[in-house]
Simulated scan of single mutants.
Amino acid sequence: MQERRVVNDTGLVGFFNRVYSVMGSGLLLTAAISYLLGTVFYNQYANFVANHTFMFYILLFLPLFLSMGVNSRRAQANAGYAGLMFYLISACYGTTFTVILIQYQSSIVAISFLTTAVIFLTMSVVGRITKQDLSRAGVIATSALIGVILLSVINFFMQSSGLQLILSYAILVIFIVLTAFDTQKLKTIYMSANQEGGYVVNTNTLAIQGALALYLDFLNIFLVVLRLFGGSSSRD
């Protein structure tokens, strides 16, 4: 019995290493594309956004459809396909987030990224080691996110800076909770995978699906922290 637990713990460490490796490579791809488009190819990028607005919006919403591919039956059968979808998502965000990042000084972006990394790693560790079931917290956070999105749409027309600040802090708290929840959920699924009465999953695909969930948590925390730290700061 003790041997089986040790084997599971060892496998769990390897599993999360794959998750963080895929997630990290996705973030690196996003950052590299944003950096190149915001510096080396800035003029070409600015012309593309100005002259191909429709294509830009396609790239903006394309990750929503690609994420379905990561979680599809085909992805479950073929981890390579899931990986391709994940990296396409990372590339799309790298392209569209450049519009946001070029508004801020590089020092603000760097500080925001490091702060996000600390927050993310802390909550991911909490999700892995806590014995408390975070399912209820995850459901509440997801429900709250829907409400925040609706309020954000309303505030788009109201243009209330006070409400925007409240929404930013709300989003930050929500994704902090979701980081711990998603990590614990991954741990639970992995430990039950392919066991009698448990989930039957392709753990390589599960690692990519988990990487996507945590990648999105990281990006959302980063964008809020960037907004809070940056304020009116810009490159101008």
Score class of each variant (00 low, 15 high):
Met1Ser: 08
Met1Glu: 02
Gln2Gly: 08
Gly14Val: 09
Asn17Ser: 15
Val19Ser: 12
Tyr20Asn: 05
Leu28Phe: 13
Leu28Ile: 13
Tyr35Pro: 00
Tyr35Arg: 06
Phe41Tyr: 15
Phe41Ala: 10
Tyr42Phe: 12
Ala50Pro: 03
Phe54Thr: 15
Leu59Arg: 03
Phe61Met: 08
Phe65Asp: 02
Phe65Lys: 03
Asn71Lys: 15
Arg74Tyr: 09
Gly80Trp: 10
Tyr81Pro: 00
Thr98Trp: 05
Ser112Trp: 13
Leu114Ser: 13
Ala117Val: 15
Ile119Ser: 14
Thr122Pro: 11
Ser124Arg: 11
Arg128Asp: 08
Ile129Asn: 00
Lys131Tyr: 09
Ala137Gly: 02
Ala137Trp: 15
Ile140Asp: 02
Ile146Ala: 10
Gly147Thr: 02
Val148Met: 09
Ser152Thr: 11
Ser152Phe: 07
Val153Tyr: 05
Phe157Tyr: 08
Phe157Asp: 03
Gln159Phe: 12
Ser160Met: 08
Leu163Ser: 00
Leu167Asp: 03
Ile174Pro: 09
Ile174Phe: 13
Ile174His: 11
Phe175Gly: 01
Ile176Met: 08
Thr179Asn: 12
Thr183Pro: 07
Lys185Asp: 06
Thr188Gly: 05
Glu196Arg: 05
Glu196Pro: 00
Asn202Gly: 06
Asn204Lys: 13
Gly210His: 13
Tyr215Asp: 13
Phe218Pro: 09
Leu219Phe: 10
Phe222Glu: 11
Phe222Tyr: 13
Val224Ser: 03
Val224Gln: 03
